[in-house]
Amino acid sequence: MGCFSSKLTNQSPGHENPVALAAETVFSVSEVEALYELFKNISSSVIDDGLINKEEFQLALFKNSQKENLFADRVFYLFDVKRRGVIDFGDFVRSLSVFHPNAPREDKMEFAFKLYDMDSTGYIEREEVKQMLIALLCESEMKLSDEVIESILDKTFEEADTDRDGRISRDEWQNFVSHNPSLMKIMTLPYLRDITTTFPSFVFNSAVDDIAT
């Protein structure tokens, strides 16, 4: 029981064992293998080196490799766990695992906190939120006056920054999110529940003889 004989041959460097990745994440072995099909598509779109670079990530997100976007940069930065400027398969699976509908809520809250804590200070600062708001306005061509932006920030910090020190701590973030559950919508990707049907070709490329589902 629990034995898997792997025929792990001809795999890209960085393609971690699907059984080990499934054990570490909420994905089954089949789902990890289906994700490898997606990973192969994205990682070979510009340079076929078995790694996703920023250009490839942007191309997959926007169908445009040159589109600069602060939020996509933040997500890429967090997926690039080893800080090498590229995302390998293991990091891709571990990061996407947080977005699975069954992933722990705490993991989703922590990922979102890091996303917004742009300077990695352990706090979400007002200036960071302002910078993100302005980036969103530019992206969406929405126009809001400075006055309105400041009032949105005032209102947000009034609710979230309960100790009134001008920044949002992890505890304050968790409290704020629990009162505003819609903020966690972006942290769940329903697609991940059906990943094996989206990429059925994983069956033909499976490196694992016995599939644990």
């Binding site: 997606l38 598509n41 994205i42 997959a60 997100l61 926007f62 169908k63 976007n69 602060l70 939020f71 996509a72 940069d73 933040r74 997500v75 977005f99 996303l115 917004y116 939120v129 993100m132 708001l133 980036a135 969103l136 992206e139 969406s140 929405m142 809001l144 309105v148 009032s151 949105i152 920030l153 209102k155 947000t156 609710e159 979230a160 505003n180 819609s182 903020l183 919508k185 972006i186 990707l189 697609y191 990943i195 989206t198």
Partner: peptide, 24 residues
């Protein structure tokens, strides 16, 4: 938008819509 909190607005960004990764 003025009635929304900043994070609700930010989460509308296309850059945070990772569902696009799954589009073939």
């Amino acid at each position: 938008p003025a009635a929304m909190n900043a994070f609700e607005l930010i989460s509308m960004s296309q850059g945070l819509n990772l569902g696009n990764l799954f589009e073939k």
